[in-house]
């Protein structure tokens, strides 16, 4: 498997606060990688710097062999990275269909957009039912499906997911992680920042444990599950 994403010495600062301190991580093509850690561990800051929303203070981000740090957000999307932000952030005044159309903004071929729209409706049947409704009127779970489908409309090679299970009921969370697996089977690699360690380790191939902006450990999902500190802090002993 070839390396898709390679991060070296990433540092992120907000004013005087250093949120990410020299993080190294990598992700191979076809992998699901989980970033584990408590609130304030730096997971979201890493995700935001990968998509370009936050400009890293130092370090390099290489995606498919190209350095992408410092590029604009839309440029990074066009290189093949999709983003499912924390809190869904659907466009509440647009219909479900219009949200998906915006998701495919960079795609110029109308037939291709329609084909992807059909694929998304098949993958997320609830969106087909809600197609003409305003996104702001969907439930939290439906909005998360929409955010996921919207990110997939640009057909990314790498999908960044920031706290996808936050605020969702256990049943929806279970369905969400099943979807994560099926997205991977479509050839999309996934980097997921998630507090729900139990669920994310079930689907991930590899995981990084973050604490106060630093990587405190990494390994395969099975290795991470076996670690005493991970079990104690994140898996309920």
């Amino acid at each position: 498997m070839s390396v898709l994403l390679e991060v070296r010495g990433l540092e992120v600062k907000y004013g005087a606060v250093q949120a990410v301190k020299g993080v190294d991580l990598s992700l191979d093509e076809g992998q699901i990688v989980a970033l584990l850690g408590a609130n304030g561990a730096g997971k979201s800051s890493i995700i935001k710097s990968l998509i370009g929303v936050v400009k890293p203070r130092a370090g390099t981000i290489e995606f498919m062999g190209r350095q992408i740090q410092g590029r604009s957000v839309h440029d990074i999307n066009r290189l093949g990275i999709g983003w499912v932000p924390e809190g869904r952030q659907v466009f509440s005044h647009l219909t479900v269909e219009a949200n998906l159309m915006v998701g495919a903004f960079a795609v110029r071929d109308d037939a291709l957009v329609q084909r992807r729209m059909g694929e998304m409706m098949e993958m997320f049947p609830i969106l087909e039912q809600r197609r003409t409704q305003l996104a702001g009127f969907l439930s939290g779970g439906e909005q998360q499906m929409l955010a996921l489908a919207r990110a997939l409309m640009s057909d990314p090679r790498l999908l960044l997911m920031d706290e996808p299970s936050l605020g969702l009921s256990p049943l929806i969370v279970q369905r969400l992680f099943e979807l994560v697996k099926s997205i991977r089977s479509r050839g999309v690699s996934i980097l997921m920042a998630e507090q729900n360690a139990r669920q994310s380790l079930k689907v991930a191939d590899h995981a990084y444990l973050l604490e106060v902006g630093e990587v405190r450990g990494s390994g395969t999902a099975r290795e991470m599950e076996a670690r005493e500190d991970v079990r104690r802090a994140y898996l309920g002993g």
Partner: peptide
């Protein structure tokens, strides 16, 4: 229009719209 929808998206969540490929 396509750009009009993008404009409404940018009005609400500019960075999310940018992450969909919209040039803000």
């Amino acid at each position: 229009t396509r750009w009009g929808q993008a404009t409404r998206a940018v009005a609400e969540w500019p960075y999310v719209a940018a992450a969909c490929g919209v040039n803000i």
